[in-house]
């Protein structure tokens, strides 16, 4: 009998303890916008797998913002469809600033060109807190292939086989634009992400590939890869000797970009508080070192400026792919 009583009381104590811990089924919160974040945690969605560039950026920022706002900031990976799944979930969350997302530029201005109408999210359906940084693409070839310049590619004699990191990626877009404008016959060979593409280029399986600078730089420095052009709008500081595609005469500026998104309807004061916190995070020494170590170019513009950047990108890419009859998606 006594045993049962002890058992009951410990069960009661346990349940009281549990109720004290916050759940995460949260629907509407009563926080005043002015008190944001008011001690409640912030969740940041990342639409990619852990370990990738977007994920690392999210985690680096979360560390800093956590200190600025004095609340827990956790990164939640929700991979799928280049971030479309995470974006979909974000749209369904309460617009109180407690759920954010690190949104990829490619989802905003490249994916819509590769998938059927309505399958890619529209950035008009979200509020934007701030831009973060940009990641450049570089066209590389294996050092022992002897290919160093665009002229070498033109003189190859057969169709250039180029590796891409997937359908609807910046890697594909940059190369399609480049080769179409240069009048070089080419065949796209899609791989599953940066690493396999890099491996294929190094191993000479494909002639060239376009990958993010951060992934290629070590091999370039080791002399295993030759950078031919970069797809930035200006010469990249990390590769001072490599011309940009634009310099070489081809209108193919393509960059990966990231920004902090929030569900539509987030109060302006909340956005401002967040923008402020992220702004301070950008200034932190450890974050700046992170950018340097990963060859990222800061793009810390405000929400509206970013929206304009990305909308312009989408429009100009749409125009130029139509002009050169490039179809990023299905070939039926």
């Amino acid at each position: 009998m006594a045993r049962t009583r002890t058992w009951i009381s410990s069960a009661l104590a346990a349940s009281l303890l549990l109720t004290a811990c916050g759940g995460n089924l949260g629907s509407g919160s009563d926080d005043e916008a002015a008190d944001f974040p008011d001690g409640k945690a912030i969740t940041v969605y990342v639409g990619q797998d852990p370990g990738g560039s977007t994920d690392l950026i999210a985690r680096a920022l979360a560390e800093e913002v956590k200190n600025e706002l004095d609340v827990a900031v956790t990164v939640e990976n929700k991979p799928g469809a280049n971030g479309a799944l995470a974006a979909q979930e974000l749209a369904g969350k309460t617009a109180d600033g407690h759920t954010l997302m690190i949104y990829n530029g490619s989802l905003a201005y490249i994916t819509p060109l590769a998938v059927p109408e309505g399958e890619a999210p529209d950035i008009a359906d979200y509020d934007i807190v701030t831009g973060i940084s940009q990641d450049d693409y570089v066209l590389v070839a294996a050092a022992d292939s002897g290919l160093k310049t665009m002229d070498d590619l033109k003189g190859l004699g057969k169709a250039v086989k180029f590796g891409t990191t997937g359908v609807g990626t910046g890697s594909q877009l940059s190369q399609e634009l480049l080769f179409a404008q240069a009048g070089i016959e080419s065949t796209a060979v899609p791989f599953d992400g940066g690493s396999p593409t890099l491996t294929a280029v190094l191993g000479g399986q494909v002639d060239v590939g376009s990958i993010q600078l951060g992934e290629a730089v070590e091999q370039i420095e080791a002399g295993e890869l030759t950078p031919i052009v970069t797809f930035a709008s200006e010469r990249v500081s990390y590769l001072p000797d490599t011309p940009t595609a634009v310099e070489a005469g081809y209108d193919a500026p393509v960059q990966q970009s990231r920004a902090v998104f929030a569900p539509k309807g987030t109060p302006t004061e909340v956005i401002d508080t967040l923008a402020d916190a992220f702004g301070k995070a950008f200034g932190a020494e450890s974050y700046q070192k992170f950018n340097e170590d990963n060859q990222l170019t800061p793009n810390e513009v405000d929400g509206e400026a970013l929206r304009q950047q990305w909308t312009e990108n989408l429009d100009s890419y749409r125009t130029v792919t139509e002009e050169h009859q490039i179809d990023l998606g299905g070939d039926q």
Binding site: P50, G51, G52, D55, L56, A60, E221
Partner: peptide
């Protein structure tokens, strides 16, 4: 593989970029 990718990320955070060197 995926785990190596995350370890790669952990090294990046430390400022070490794995490569041939």
């Amino acid at each position: 593989n995926a785990t190596m990718a995350v370890i790669f990320g952990a090294l990046l955070i430390q400022g070490i970029r794995p490569g041939p060197q």
